[in-house]
Amino acid sequence: MGKPGFERAHHVAFFDAMATELPGDYDKQEVNHLTLSYFALGGLSLLRELDRVNKDEIARWVLSFQVHPEAHTDVDSGLFYGFCGSRSTQFPLSNVKDPCHNGSHLASTYSALAILKIVGYDLANVDSKALLQSMKKLQQPDGSFMPIHIGAETDLRFVYCAAAICSMLDDWTGMDKLKAKEYILNCQSYDGGFGMVPGSESHGGGTFCAVAALHLMGFIQVDLASNLNDSASIDMRMLLEWCLQRQVNDGGFQGRRNKASDTCYAFWVGGVLKIIGAYHLIDRCALREFLLTCQSPYGGFTKFPFDRIPDIYHSYYGLAALSLLEEEGLEPLSVELGILSSAL
């Protein structure tokens, strides 16, 4: 059996099918409908196959999830005027007696704006004033963000979402950057990686959120040498070592020490290395071979090598990781925002 190649046609078929209709198994993730759509459409965009969908229709659909304040509403009341993640979390204002009904969520808002960027919608047309002003209320005294005003876990994921939202809208009034930075620094663990919250175990996803947010906020440079000299008071040397140690013998990246490698961390950890200017230090050939063994025979990617059934999350991050490796036939990605470079 020869080494597998990049099965572009299979992936196009897979993402096309996903963009047409997500299978019923995804109904447990229905609240993240916008994020699932971001994966499907982001995958098509990386494959340069976005012509298969109707971009105007997509933009209209995404915009229909935004919650707008009513004429005389106090935007500083604590409610967040972002995007709801799905229809089942969206409730028309006039119908609800619960004053807290608004279900807009930071992750969904990030996904909404990312999709709009991907389909070429001009974000200057998005009503961003109420969005940003109310988003600032989600920031906690320790600098972290709550994803939704009715209360939920706070961790690095939402600091990243807030930073990406401000960056995409090109307006940083939505957050206190110094506070956010302080929180991020508190999440760097004794081993150089970042945990999702202060004290927790270093984790590929948490580390991505930390470093990408610092970069978006302007606290990280693009080249490794400058970062090692002046690195926003994070321990850059240990971070570099932590990231590089995550590449394991099968060529893939693990998300945490002593765990199996997994498709998505080729993006999360590889993305951190890209951001800090150290991507050239990994073994690219070994990583590519690993990723190719994670391709499903049905198109898309699986979490682990030689599995069969793909899922949309690992499929998107498999492609994104191959885009970082400059695989032929894939669009370059702006890693810190998770959208095509050409969409910026």
């Binding site: 997500l22 019923g24 109904d27 229905e30 699932l36 995404v62």
Partner: peptide, 18 residues
């Protein structure tokens, strides 16, 4: 019933029970 809004994009094949 759910208001699906403008023509749904990337729809999910909901099960009836849901």
């Amino acid at each position: 019933p759910q208001d699906d809004g403008p023509s749904p994009v990337v729809p999910i094949a909901y099960r009836d029970g849901f």
